[in-house]
């Protein structure tokens, strides 16, 4: 049987870099909400992930 991690954070898109520490996923810093939305959309389409809102100005992209 093939074993794999099925849910993991692909990327983080944040308005405030201070809210995200270093980790496994790349962090993209956006200048405003519109840019954050746009980056998250592009990344979601490219990686086939889903964008989730942590409600503190940080978006995460998760592979489900």
């Amino acid at each position: 049987m093939k074993t794999q991690i099925s849910k993991y954070i692909l990327a983080v898109v944040t308005l405030d870099p201070a809210l995200v520490g270093s980790g496994g996923a790349p962090v993209f810093v956006a200048r405003d909400r519109a840019e954050q939305d746009r980056i998250a959309t592009y990344l979601a389409r490219i990686t086939e992930g889903v964008v989730h809102d942590l409600e503190n100005g940080v978006y995460i992209l998760v592979k489900h």
């Binding site: 998250a40 959309t41 979601a44 889903v50 964008v51 989730h52 809102d53 409600e55």
Partner: peptide, 20 residues
């Protein structure tokens, strides 16, 4: 409710993007 999607009172998932 905010980014959280519900069907009746059952929580489904958190969707960030407004367009979605």
């Amino acid at each position: 409710k905010g980014p959280n999607l519900f069907v009746e009172d059952i929580h489904f998932m958190n969707l960030a993007r407004e367009e979605v």
